[in-house]
Design a protein around this nucleic acid. Structure first.
Lengths: 340, 340
DNA sequence: CTGAAAGCGCTTACAG
DNA sequence: CTGAAAGCGCTTACAG
C-alpha cells in the first residue's frame, strides 16, 4: 500500500493538481461534476492528505483562545493544558493568541469585547472560547463568526459548535460513590455553585442518582453562588438544621470555606467533605484531612484536548464534542495534580 | 518576532543552507569550526526547526514496537494508546510496525527473535520495546542497536535508554490509602506477582510505606507468580493463617482469583479487596462488589506517551523517562476505562 | 471553471 | 569539507 498523494488523485480524476486541491478543500470555484469526480477518485484511492505538506504550503494557522480570568488558579490549569498541546503543534506551524476576559465585570461586556478583538482584526483562523453567557445575543454573535469554533469548559448549544468539557454528572456520581465507601455515612448534604446553572445542575443530578443507588440520603442542598462567605454561612446553617449530616459534597471551588466552618464548629473528623478541583487551598485541606478527597475536573486535559480538536477542525477533519473523565485525588497522589 | 528559518541561520553563519542543515543535525562531515559557527547563529537567532518541513523533506520515519502478547487484554490497552497517538502522527508522515512476541515461551528467545527482525532488516528508525529480560545478554544486544530506543511498561537501565512506565510505588500507595479510608480496617495482606521482580517490589514498597503512615498493619505477603490457581491457594492459606485480615491488595492481574476464593469461603463483604488494571474479569468483580476499587496502571496513556517520546527522539529533541500516574477506578466511573 | 507555476522549510544525493 | 539543486506534498496567487 504505497502512499497515495494528491498527484495520484489528480491523475485518477484527469484534472490538474491545483484543481484537485480546490475540489478536495471546497475552495475556489470548480464544476460540480469535477468535484464529484475528484472526491470519488480520492475515496477509491484511499487518499489521506499529508498534514506536514498542508501546513508547509498553507499559511500558518493561528488559534484564538478566549477564556475567563477568574478563579486564576483554575484557569491557569486550562492554560497549562493549552500550552502543553501548543508546544507540540507549534513546531508544525500552528500559532495561538490567548486572551482572558474579566468574567466578574458587568454582564457579558468583557466577553463580547474579547470576541470583537479577535473577529474585527480577523487575526485568528479558529476560536476556542468559554462563554460567559447563554443569552441569545451571545448565540447570535457567535453564529456570525464563520471560522471554526469550540467551546471549552462549558457545554455550548450543539448547533453553534462542539464542546470540550468534563463529564459533569460523573463528577457528582464519583463524589456520591466515594462518600458511600465509608459505610458509616447515611445522611449527606450538597453545596453547589448555583442550582439553576446547567453545569451545577448536572453535577447535582449525578450526585443524586448515584446517592440514591447507594443508599445515601440527600438531606440538604444549598447554593454558594461561588462565594466563600456564603459557603461558610450556608454550611453553618446546614450543620445547625441537619445535625445528622455526616458527609458533604461541595461542587464548586468553595470547599475550603466549608472545611473552615466545619473545623470552627469542632466537627472536623465527624463530617467527611469531598470537594472539586485542585489548587492551593483545596490541596491544603486535603493534606490536613479536612477534605477527604477531591474530584479533579481535569482542566489540564480539557485544555489539551481543546487544542487537539481545534487542530482537527482547522484541517477539516470531523470532530465531536467530548467529555473528559474526572479523576479522584487522594492524599498520596496529590503531587500528580498540584505542586506548591 | 518573525519566524526564523534555516535560511536565516545559514546567512547569519555565512554558509550554504545544506551546510547549515548538516551542521545542525550532525550528519555528513563538516568542519568543527563551521559547526560551531552555525550552532551559535542558530542560538542567537532563536532558530526552531519546522517539523512539518523536516517530515516532508526527510524520508518517512518508521517506529518499530516490540511488546509481549500476554495477558492479551492488558497488552491491548498499550496497543490502543499506541494507535491513538499514531493516528495523530501518521498524518504527519510517521509510520509504525508492531510485533508481539510470545512472552510465555522458553527464556527470552522470542524477544530476541523480534529484536532481530527489526534490526536485521533495518526496517525501523526507532524502537519501542518491553523487555522480557534483565539479563546482560539482553542489555548488550540492545546497546548494539544504534537507533533511538525506548522501554515501555518496564523500567530499563537508564544507560540503555529512557522509559515510560507507571509510577510503580504510587500504585501501592494509592491502594494503602484507599484501604485506610474505611476506617475499620487494621490488618491487611498483599498478594504480589513475584516479590523479587523490580516492578512488584516497588508496588510493595509503596504499599508498605503508605500503610505504615496510615496505621495499617501489613500482616502477610504472598507471591502469586501471576498464576490464577496459585493466587487462589495463597489467598486460602492467608485467610486461614491470618483470620484478622480485613483488606487485601492484589498487585498483579490475578485479583479475580483472590475474589473467587473470598466468595467461596463466605467472606465476601468482610474483606475489602483492591486490585490493579481494568479488564473483563476485574471489571466484573468491581461491578458485583467483590472488588472495592481498581488501581488502573494507565496502560493506554503509557502507550500514548511512548509514541510521543519516540517522535521527539526521532526529531532529536531531548527526552527524559516519565512515570505515568495511576488512576483510581470505582464502580461509577468504570465506563471510562472499560467497555464490555 | 481550469491549470501551470511558484514556493512553504527542510534534507539528501550529487558534484566539486 | 562545502555548496547548488532537486524534491517532499501540498496551497495559493495568477493567467487563461
Amino acid at each position: 500500500m504505497a502512499k497515495v498523494s494528491i498527484t495520484d488523485v489528480a491523475a485518477e480524476a484527469h484534472v490538474a493538481i491545483s484543481t484537485a486541491s480546490k475540489a478536495l478543500n471546497g475552495t475556489g470555484s470548480i464544476g460540480k461534476d469535477t468535484v464529484e469526480r475528484v472526491m470519488e477518485a480520492a475515496k477509491r484511492l484511499g487518499y489521506r492528505p499529508n498534514r506536514a505538506a498542508q501546513m508547509l504550503a498553507g499559511k500558518q494557522k493561528k488559534i484564538g483562545i478566549l477564556i475567563p480570568d477568574f478563579p486564576d488558579q483554575i484557569i491557569s490549569c486550562f492554560e497549562a493544558g493549552i500550552a502543553d498541546a501548543m508546544e507540540e503543534y507549534a513546531s508544525f506551524g500552528f500559532r495561538h493568541t490567548l486572551f482572558r476576559y474579566d468574567n466578574r465585570a458587568q454582564g457579558d461586556a468583557a466577553f463580547f469585547d474579547g470576541l470583537e478583538l479577535f473577529a474585527r482584526k480577523e487575526l485568528v483562523d479558529g476560536l476556542i472560547f468559554t462563554p460567559s453567557c447563554v443569552s441569545s445575543v451571545c448565540r447570535d454573535r457567535l453564529m456570525q463568526l464563520s471560522i471554526p469554533k469550540l467551546s471549552l469548559q462549558i457545554r455550548a448549544d450543539p448547533t453553534i459548535c462542539t464542546s470540550v468539557t468534563v463529564d459533569e454528572p460523573m463528577v457528582g456520581r464519583m463524589a456520591a460513590e466515594f462518600l458511600s465507601l465509608f459505610g458509616t455515612i447515611r445522611s449527606t448534604g450538597v453545596i453547589v455553585g448555583e442550582r439553576n446553572i446547567a453545569i451545577h445542575k448536572m453535577n447535582l443530578e449525578g450526585y443524586a442518582s448515584e446517592a440514591a443507588a447507594r443508599g445515601l440520603e440527600l438531606t440538604a442542598i444549598a447554593d454558594s453562588y461561588n462565594d466563600m462567605n456564603t459557603a461558610y454561612n450556608e454550611t453553618e446553617s446546614m450543620l445547625q438544621n441537619f445535625p445528622q449530616i455526616q458527609g458533604i459534597f461541595v461542587s464548586s471551588y468553595v470547599a475550603p470555606a466549608v472545611c473552615s466552618c466545619i473545623r470552627d464548629r469542632g466537627k472536623a473528623g465527624d463530617i467527611r467533605v469531598i470537594g472539586v478541583d485542585v489548587y492551593k487551598e483545596t490541596a491544603e485541606c486535603l493534606a490536613c484531612g479536612l477534605l477527604s478527597a477531591i474530584i479533579y475536573q481535569n482542566q489540564r486535559e480539557q485544555g489539551r484536548q481543546s487544542i487537539r480538536q481545534m487542530v482537527s477542525l482547522l484541517l477539516d477533519e470531523p470532530t465531536e464534542s467530548i467529555r473528559i473523565k474526572p479523576e479522584l485525588v487522594m492524599n498520596c497522589n496529590l503531587s500528580f495534580y498540584y505542586t506548591p
